[in-house]
Simulated scan of single mutants.
Amino acid sequence: MNLAVIGFGNAGGKIVDKLLEFERDTGRSLWRFALAVNSAEIDLERLEYVPRDHQILIGQTDQRVKGRGAGADPEVGASVAERDSHEIERALDGVPIHDIDGFLLVAGLGGGTGSGGAPVFGETLDELYEEPVYGLGVLPSADEGGRAAFNAARSLPSFTEATENLLLFDNDTWRKHGETVERGYDRTNWEIARRVVTLLAAGEIDGSRVSEAAMDSSDVKRTLSTGGVSTVAYASEELESSTKEEKGLLSRFTDGDQSNGEHADTTMKVHGLVRKAVQSRMTCPADLSSAERSLIVVSGPPEEVSQKGIRRARRWLEEETGSVEVLAGDDPREYADTLSVAVLLSNVTSVPRIDRLQDQGVEAKQNIEQQSATREDEISDLITDDGNELDPI
């Protein structure tokens, strides 16, 4: 797919930055336009790959913001996104509409600017353009506190409604014990980039070999057209240089066609990687059988990509999901050092993490209301003498 990607808020901007870095490092061709939108100037300063003239600071005239952020308040984030939407729209004049398949709107859902502003701007994009608007939302980890859970639980239905399909990434699933916050976010953003780029860049013409079974953007768009929320599974395996050289030499004589003598090990390797991907950590854990549609992308050196293995993996996933709506194809990468698999599970409806998040959000809401109800009395008790004998000046 060819996409215009927009990061909203601190997490959204950092993820877009990482997407651009990963695309550059792997020689992919996916992003036709990139934009970062934030209400905090200091967060924009940290970006390395989003061009400076594609960084938009919103809320500068809002007395609550003034370039210092939305203060983890999604109401403020939504307000400034709506008020300054014309500035963002002007920046989108540079989008090559004739050359994109859609938009990808990225945001963390636990803060203020992203959780409040991304759903608002998603609706704006939908009104302005005919191209689909996809979302990538990051759920906060439990240690980010009740306020973050409350924000995410409120933002999730709005963001889902404002996009064609919302890919979810759960920080709670990807936390590592003892890891610093900064290191943790940098690592998880790289994991997001690896999965999203591997999945969405499949089938694009970027100098890599194109096979007869290559995945293309229409396959990805069809799988994402279900609406709802989705998750991505991923697995990879390092390739030994001697194995690559041997099979690469063989492919020159066979013109890359292994149909008459395809190695059993490549068949099992591809099939095994697909099973490993969906049985290990998804971007947001979900029940396989609840997916409406699925898509498998196998990426790596052509001689390592077994078509028989892909067919076998597709049949296995059909059985696991109970759906015949499973597409599968390859994305040949002649000089790749790894064989990787990305599996998109679209419109999953059994997601335990969302249930827990909603419970956390309700509990946080009740705590906030209870604290608000008693706060005025507590303040009064603090500043007034016990006998109420002193008159204020």
Rank of each mutant, 00 (worst) to 15 (best):
E164R: 13
A78D: 03
S79Q: 14
R68S: 14
G77Q: 08
A70L: 07
E82R: 12
V76Y: 01
Y134M: 13
G145Y: 04
H98R: 15
A153V: 03
E87M: 14
R154L: 10
V120G: 01
G137C: 07
P132R: 13
G117M: 13
L92E: 12
A78I: 00
E127S: 15
P140V: 10
E87K: 15
V106E: 02
E87P: 00
P96E: 09
L104C: 11
E130P: 00
T160I: 02
L109F: 05
D99N: 13
L109W: 04
R90I: 04
R68P: 00
E144W: 01
L167T: 05
S115I: 03
V95M: 14
A149Q: 13
A78L: 04
S141K: 13
G137Y: 03
E82S: 14
P96S: 10
V120D: 01
G77A: 14
L104S: 10
L125E: 08
G102R: 04
D73H: 05
V76G: 03
G117D: 10
H98P: 06
L156N: 01
L105C: 11
V106R: 01
L139G: 03
G145N: 07
G110D: 11
T124M: 13
L105D: 03
V133F: 06
L139Y: 08
L166Y: 08
G71V: 06
E164Y: 00
L139C: 09
G145W: 05
L136C: 08
H86V: 12
S115Q: 07
A107F: 02
A149D: 09
D73Q: 13
V120S: 05
R90T: 12
V95H: 11
G112F: 01
D101T: 04
Y134E: 03
S158P: 01
E127F: 05
P119C: 12
D126H: 12
G102N: 07
V106C: 02
G108A: 06
D99W: 00
S155H: 02
D143E: 15
I97T: 11
A142Q: 07
T163A: 08
G77C: 12
S158G: 00
T163R: 02
L167K: 04
A118H: 03
E82Y: 06
G71S: 07
V120T: 15
E131P: 00
A148L: 04
L109T: 04
E82V: 03
V76N: 05
A81F: 09
I100H: 08
G146D: 12
G102E: 07
E123I: 00
T160H: 06
V138M: 14
A152I: 09
A70T: 04
F121W: 12
H86C: 06
L136N: 05
T160P: 00
E87V: 09
L156M: 05
E144V: 06
G117I: 07
E144Y: 03
G110C: 10
N151W: 07
G117F: 10
L156G: 06
G135K: 04
L156R: 00
A78G: 15
A149S: 15
